[in-house]
Simulated assay, not measured.
Amino acid sequence: MYVLGIETSCDETGVAIYHSKQGLLSHFLYSQVAMHNDYGGVVPELASRDHVQKLIPLVKQALTEAHTPSATINGIAYTAGPGLMGALLVGATVARSLAWAWQIPAVAVHHMEGHLLATMLETPAPQLPFVALLISGGHTLLIRVDAIGAYQILGESLDDAAGEAFDKTAKLLGIGYPGGAKLAQLARQGQPVYKFPRPMTDRPGLDFSFSGLKTYALNTWQQSAQSEQDKANIALAFEQAIAETLTIKCKRALQQTGLKRLVVAGGVSANLTIRSALTKLTEAQNAEIFFPRLEFCTDNGAMIAYAGCQRLLANQQQDLAIVTKPRWPLTELAPLSLLP
């Protein structure tokens, strides 16, 4: 089965062609970071307009790169949520229109399920069941995954997600946009002068709270000499606090479930300090760890194509109505067995 995947949930336009037997055939991504940089964050209206301009050319490019004419495509997968309403509508409208014109099925894909399954594009891919840590700008989730769609939420952020805390802290320190990546880069120049709290690790449970960390960072900055070295030191302390908090919670999740596989995905999973800390954890726990390649940590069409392909193989599809879900709990998804 040849599947066209379309991702337009926020500020990246992603398109990919995936084959159920041959694997990923092509994928292209256009990032809007440069455009939104002037505003210090994503402007939803501008994001939607840019998706309109970039999506169809990327679809044509992906088909050409995969040597796959449109008549060969068997199904279309598109991100229906969560995300920005306008951005989601662009992808959903194009996907449903192409599916109608080509007379093939289309399936709505949950954005976070796409991230969760991104490691399935790697070799080796993780075997089910496993514990998944999804860390992005909008979500911090610990999930027990028994099958595609069979998700049990073990813990979640009660306020700011990890990526959101990175971005907000970067903005408070005047680091710029995209904040999380720039803060992590600055942290490499930092010295271990400060030690920030590890929120909610002194009590049982698997939920997260990162809102207080950005306040702690701001107070530390205001009380410092506000030199560039102070800024780097604070960035390092903040990053270390996030990494150790995630590590403590993942250790608890592995022990609680008795599972020996940890999947880490989402935009923040590209952070090298977090990757290193979680890798050391799994080595100490005699467990396996799986990350998507760096290019698949951010939003992309490949993960949507893969996730959609599995659901299309299970005969799931949407009708002609164009439906998007800016808010869409992961637990609402229908479970299905992982198909070969």
Rank of each mutant, 00 (worst) to 15 (best):
M85C: 08
R144C: 11
S337K: 15
K325D: 04
L133M: 08
A184Q: 15
G40R: 03
T298H: 08
C10P: 01
S157Y: 01
K195E: 14
A217L: 06
V33E: 11
Y177D: 14
L183K: 15
V3T: 09
K249S: 00
Q310C: 12
P69E: 05
L88C: 05
I56S: 15
L312Q: 05
P178N: 14
G81K: 02
G149L: 08
I153F: 04
L254R: 10
T273P: 06
L272D: 02
L24E: 03
P82G: 01
G258P: 06
R49K: 13
S209E: 07
A47W: 05
V268Y: 08
T298S: 13
K214T: 01
F196N: 02
I242C: 09
P57T: 14
E228A: 12
H51I: 12
T245S: 05
P335T: 12
N37D: 10
A77L: 07
P82K: 00
S227L: 09
K231A: 05
S70K: 14
C250W: 00
L142D: 03
G5Y: 00
K168W: 07
K231N: 07
L4W: 00
G155Q: 01
G190S: 13
H19Y: 01
A243E: 06
A16G: 00
L281H: 02
Q191R: 13
L25T: 05
Q229F: 10
A307T: 13
A235M: 11
I135C: 10
G205Q: 08
Q226S: 07
R327W: 04
Q32H: 10
Y151G: 03
Y177S: 09
P178Y: 13
T169G: 08
T201R: 03
D230C: 12
S70N: 13
T282M: 05
T140F: 03
N233P: 05
E12K: 03
L281N: 02
N37I: 03
V43T: 04
Y177K: 10
N271S: 06
A302W: 04
I153P: 10
W102S: 12
K195G: 00
Q185R: 12
T247F: 00
F166W: 14
Y216H: 13
